[in-house]
Design a binder for these strands. Structure first.
Lengths: 206, 206
DNA sequence: TGCAAATATCACCGGTGGGTGACATCTCGC
DNA sequence: GCGAGATGTCACCCACCGGTGATATTTGCA
C-alpha cells in the first residue's frame, strides 16, 4: 500500500482535481495564449477527452477555476486584520493597502485583471465575472458604517485609487516598473504605499 | 485612367502601406490573439508571402507599426495646448488630463498598454518599447522648469496618477466600467477628470 | 521587341489545436 | 461470477497557422 495513492487507480474526483490544478498552472504560467484543451490535458497527464466528459469543455473548466478565486478574498481579508477603523480616511487607507498586498500576492488574479482589458474572449469574460464578484464582496466586507466626507465624489476617487494600485501591481509583476518608477524591491513598494497613504489622507483627512 | 489607382497595378510601396494598415487594423480589432501572417494577409487582400518578402516576417511588421506610434505623441501634444503652466500643480494637472484624453483617443495605444501587462511575447516587447519611448518623450516635453514642492515623493505620486488614469482608460474601453464606476458617457469621464484634479490639487496646491 | 528583374500568386508541407467516436479496462452491485 | 456502467485511452477528422518553393504576370530597360 503506497502512501501516495497509486495514480493508476480510477478515481474521478482525483482526476478532476488534477485537471483543475493543471489548468490553473497553465493559465498562470503560459497565460491565456497557451491555454487549451491539449495543453491542460498534457499537463494533467490525462486524456483531453476527460476534460470534455467532466467539465463540458474549457468553459466549464474556467468556471471551476473561477470558483477558487472566491477563496482569494477570504484569505486576503483574513490577512488584512479585523480591527474596525475609526474614520473614513482610515478605512480607505486600509482598503487600498490591503488590496495592494492581496493583489501582489496572487499571480493568477493579477493575470485575470490584465486579461480583462487585453483580451475579449468568452473565457476571459467568465473569469472576469468571478473576479468582479469577489471584488464586490471585498468592498462590502470592508465597508463599515462609515460615510465619506460631504462634497467629495468618493466612488470616483476610490475607483481612481484602486485603479492606480491595480495598475502598479500589474506592471510591477510584468515589467518591474511603471513610468520610470521601479517596482521590485520592498523599498520600491514602500514608496508606493506612502504615496497612496498621502493621497488618501489629503483627500479624506485634510 | 481611374483617379483611384487600379489595385491591379503593381506598386510595392502601395502594397507595403496596405499591409501595414491591415496589420494595424487586425491588431486594434482582433487583438494580439488573432494577429498572424495569415490574418494580416487576408485583410490586406494580398498573399502572405509578401509580408515575408517586404518585412521579413511579423517582427519587421511590428517594427513598422511601432514607428507610427511616435506620431501619436506629436498629435496628442499638439492637441494639449502649449501655454506654459505657472505652477507645478497646474503642470501636473494638465499632464494628467492630457494623458487621459490622448490615451482614450487611441485604441491601438490602449491595446499596447494592456498587452504589456498581459502577454509576454517578443512581439509585444517590441511594441511596448516603442510606446515607452513615446511616453518618455511626452514626459520630457511636458516638464518645464518647474519643480515639485519639497517633502513630496513626486515621482511616486505622479506614477500613481498616471497609473490610475491609464487603468481607467483601459477598463473604460474594454468593459465600460471599473470597480463599479461607469466609464461610458461624457459625464462619467467628467467625474474622473474632477477626481483627478481634486487629487492633484490636494497634493500640490494644498 | 525581347528579355530579365520585380512583383504577386499559388500549392504545398509540417505542426498544432479543438472536437468526437470507438475501444479498453476497471468497479461495483446483483 | 458476471454484467453494466463508470473511468480512462486511442485514433482520427477537420481547420488553421507559420513558413517555403515554384510559378505566373507585369514592368522597365536595353
Amino acid at each position: 500500500m503506497p502512501r501516495t495513492p497509486d495514480p493508476k487507480i480510477r478515481d474521478r474526483s482525483r482526476t478532476e482535481a488534477a485537471i483543475v490544478l493543471a489548468a490553473r498552472d497553465v493559465l498562470a504560467e503560459s497565460g491565456f495564449q497557451g491555454f487549451g484543451v491539449n495543453a491542460v490535458a498534457r499537463r494533467a497527464g490525462c486524456d483531453k477527452q476527460l476534460i470534455y466528459r467532466y467539465f463540458g469543455g474549457l468553459e466549464g473548466l474556467i468556471d471551476a477555476i473561477g470558483g477558487e478565486i472566491a477563496t482569494w478574498v477570504e484569505d486576503s481579508l483574513a490577512a488584512t486584520g479585523q480591527a474596525p477603523p475609526a474614520t473614513y480616511a482610515e478605512l480607505t487607507e486600509r482598503l487600498i493597502l490591503g488590496f495592494l498586498e492581496a493583489l501582489r500576492a496572487n499571480a493568477l488574479v493579477q493575470k485575470i485583471a490584465a486579461w480583462e482589458i487585453a483580451e475579449s474572449s468568452p473565457l476571459v469574460a467568465r473569469l472576469a465575472a468571478a473576479r468582479g464578484a469577489a471584488l464586490s464582496r471585498w468592498m462590502a466586507l470592508m465597508r463599515g458604517g462609515l460615510a465619506p466626507p460631504d462634497g467629495l465624489d468618493a466612488p470616483a476617487l476610490n475607483a481612481m485609487l484602486i485603479a492606480a494600485v491595480q495598475q502598479l501591481a500589474l506592471s510591477g509583476a510584468a515589467a518591474g516598473s511603471f513610468a520610470g518608477l521601479p517596482l521590485k524591491t520592498d523599498e520600491d513598494w514602500d514608496r508606493v504605499r506612502a504615496a497612496a497613504v498621502r493621497i488618501v489622507r489629503g483627500l479624506y483627512a485634510g
